[in-house]
Nucleic acid binder design. Sequence first.
DNA 1: CGCTTCTGTTTGACATGTCAAGCAGACTGT
DNA 2: ACAGTCTGCTTGACATGTCAAACAGAAGCG
Lengths: 163, 163
Amino acid sequence: MTRWLSDDEMRAWLGYRRLRTLLDLQITRDLAADSGLSDADYDVLSTVSAAADHRMRLGELAAAIRWSVSRLSHHVSRMQQRGLVTRDDCASDGRGATVVLTDQGWATIQEAAKLHVASVREHFIDLLDPADLAALATISDKVLAHLDQVTPPDPARKSSKRP
Amino acid sequence: MTRWLSDDEMRAWLGYRRLRTLLDLQITRDLAADSGLSDADYDVLSTVSAAADHRMRLGELAAAIRWSVSRLSHHVSRMQQRGLVTRDDCASDGRGATVVLTDQGWATIQEAAKLHVASVREHFIDLLDPADLAALATISDKVLAHLDQVTPPDPARKSSKRP
DNA sequence: CGCTTCTGTTTGACATGTCAAGCAGACTGT
DNA sequence: ACAGTCTGCTTGACATGTCAAACAGAAGCG
């Protein structure tokens, strides 16, 4: 009954799996060594720094980086301790919380971004030729299009399969 | 100074990043729903089940799935509680611990594997054509070859860069 | 208004991962 | 054989992630 993976399919799948494991490990390691940031920190800082005024509603931010709101709330508390961000009340909504980059946070992410790009180039992008990059983009487009259907990014989710 | 990513490079990198995030999420979700296993559980069970006699030294197992020994030790304890594996003394080395699949563990992984393959096909492999699969294998080969140099799989590691 | 319900966020309890000891059995050289 | 060291594993303290409950303000409605 089960359609097992052929050799080629297995090679692609295991390749992806191992790539994911080792590449992420390496990039995380570099990031920590170079800038003292975790991947999580980097995601938060880079996303907020791209927003107008370097500030963003907590919920929006969580959605942007696909985290649970609770995870973000905890993590922002920790980053706040370290002086990277601040929490601010939201003018238009009394319940709201706004995450704001501190000066230190801004300085940190600017420096980190440079080193991070270097790391990404060294361990990934610069190893690939244009055809590889194009193929990768194609692959992710295909898969992401499918996943967006299965689990809509935000509208009423009813998980078509696996109830 | 910094060589930022071009549009194409950025597309490939972000595509990979998002792919990794969402695909893993989906597959993890399926695995939990279908078989009550976490990714971690699956890695352990499938690796041990592939070994002779369904048993494996703790250290070897840790190396095979690229975990720290400590992580594995903790996790095996939890899986032991759930009746999926057992710990056994090692005949040839008094310090050694051997992880052994229980009957329940074996039954579980066999069932889980079927559903897992289906999930991998549905959300990934079956979405790609042979050219995509080949490209993916090429990409991971290139990157993994590089990473193996930077951080040797086990021999004396001296981390050439970033001291 | 005053109620009910909804929403955005926080919180606490608990699961899982990491790091640095701790420990006991194996190995080595004298 | 035995002191010193190495190895394989376990443990405990702590960091981070998840889930469900608790809240307070916003919204809709009689």
